[in-house]
Amino acid sequence: MSILHTVNKSPFQKNDLTSCLAHANDDDAVLMIEDGVYGAIKGTQAASQIAAAGATVFVLGVDLAARGISEDKVADGVSVVGYDGFVKLAAEHHAVNSWL
């Protein structure tokens, strides 16, 4: 059964994204929210980890916009979603695991 994982910490300060990606199964989804959205910036170590991960990775667009990170800076393979997408992802997966 698949899980939606949420990550809300910057990967440049905390290990939550690294740990989350290491614990996510291939049919899971990972959604970066709040300060977690900094993990979506392309050309970083976090982006390499995301590219190597089996899970599907999303980022919350409104949190990106709030932080002045334009969508053209988002790494390939990361899909931008809104709160509507967040709710849908939560509904589509069997459980939600918030990496606090």
Partner: peptide, 18 residues
């Protein structure tokens, strides 16, 4: 192991993370 834990996680209905 981390891989074993991944399997355990996938079986859960409710995950409360602290």
């Amino acid at each position: 192991s981390r891989d074993e834990l991944k399997t355990v996680l996938a079986e859960q209905d409710v995950i409360m993370s602290f």
